[in-house]
Design a protein around this nucleic acid. Structure first.
Lengths: 225, 225
DNA sequence: CCAAAAGTGTTCCGTCTACACCCATGG
DNA sequence: CCATGGGTGTAGACGGAACACTTTTGG
């Protein structure tokens, strides 16, 4: 009965992670130089192979965990990349995922340990195989997502200023936004809460810190930025 | 050097097709009863396995061709479905694709031959494995796509009436649209061309037939419906 | 003659956009 | 005292939504 399958061929399946971060008012991606053949020394996304005893989603989470030590990270599938020759060594089909993390939560010692670094998404060096395509598609999906879902907060610290939030949206959209219009929109979303705390790092006058209240969001999920 | 790969496991990779059609003012999907184990007799999407010598996209096109005899069909990837137990027989990861075809172009003898039929998307019977999930995601993606890309015409004959076009959008969106507003929008798109021909089948008075002019669209790609 | 589908404009309302000045403070 | 970033409101433009009646003709 299961002989049905054995007319067919098995294929290596991998996952590749587009890990987005936000730092110095720039959208960044975590990439490293490949430490294995084929493609040794080329800039590349971080990836791994899918095991037979885990789902593809789990493989992506595990791979991210290996690299960052983080769990409960926002990850979404970008899609399958399946050209015959995309991997020069073997036939490997890869499922790309993007992840959103707060750069400050990521122990920077792990960066060196894994030989990866944050690179401005506008200045990515040539990447291995089809990884640039993956990044492009991931960015496009993320840009759409962030408009109507409060996922951008995952790229920021728990407490953030409105200017930080605006800079994030500017980096993602690749264009400047009007400060007053932006703040007007924020003000209409009650789940973006003003705290009494003031950030004095980035300005002399100081700026109020805000917080995303997830519980309040679940009650009134009207998000639009 | 390539020994790097052989620590890892290969997996069966398949493609599944969500084939959309439009008929009797309803959005339909092509499904059939599985003729093989596991899941024999259950309603299912049409699919096939990915070969090592073809890209995943090509596998989807080939599978669609096997079923319909059609080439140059609009197909887009929906995503990878990779739960461990999604296939009861073996570990199989499947990449779903949706396709848009004009029902009238499809030789209905082939329907019987392959044991598939058009089913109203609002009345799909329980489907094998995770196929309903695939349909849901495909429909969502298609609904977004059709708003800003002129792909809906692939579900219609070359010549169509504005009412047909409107019914298509109503079926996809699942809600009725205002006739005057709809026509106003159509009128602003010069690449939706009025012909001199009149359709007398669907009304006594007769309705002008329209045509999508792809060349004109390429010069002014402002589509919004 | 009537049922059934085709065709046609205007008004209103809400949303988005553009835009400029004062404030607080550290150095 | 001044450079730097923080913070605030309004008016006009634009786009989307609501809405009803006349036309044609096959049966």
């Amino acid at each position: 009965m299961t002989s049905f399958y054995f007319e067919h061929q098995k294929i290596f399946l991998s996952v590749d992670c587009i890990i987005f971060g936000f730092d110095e008012n720039k959208l960044k991606v975590l990439i490293g130089k490949r430490q294995m053949d084929p493609g040794r020394g080329e800039w590349s996304l971080y990836g791994g192979f899918v095991r037979t005893d885990e789902s593809v989603d789990d493989a992506a989470l595990r791979t991210l965990y290996e690299l960052t030590g983080m769990k409960n990270v926002y990850m979404r599938q970008v899609g399958a990349f399946g050209s015959v020759d995309r991997d020069p060594g073997e036939r490997v089909v890869s499922i790309a995922y993007y992840a959103l993390i707060n750069v400050k939560d990521y122990d920077s010692r792990l960066l060196e340990e894994h030989g990866v670094e944050w690179v401005d998404i506008e200045a990515i060096p040539p990447l291995y195989s089809d990884h640039q395509e993956m990044v492009n598609k991931a960015r496009k999906m993320m840009r759409e997502k962030i408009k109507s879902n409060p996922v951008g907060f995952r790229l920021l610290p728990q407490l953030f200023t409105l200017t930080q939030l605006q800079r994030l949206y500017e980096a993602v959209n690749g264009e400047e936004l009007d400060k007053r219009n932006f703040r007007k929109r924020v003000k209409e979303m009650d789940f973006i809460e003003k705290t009494n705390l003031i950030d004095k790092i980035s300005s002399k006058r100081g700026a109020y810190l805000y917080r995303f209240n997830n519980k309040a969001y679940n009650e009134d999920s009207n998000f639009k930025l």
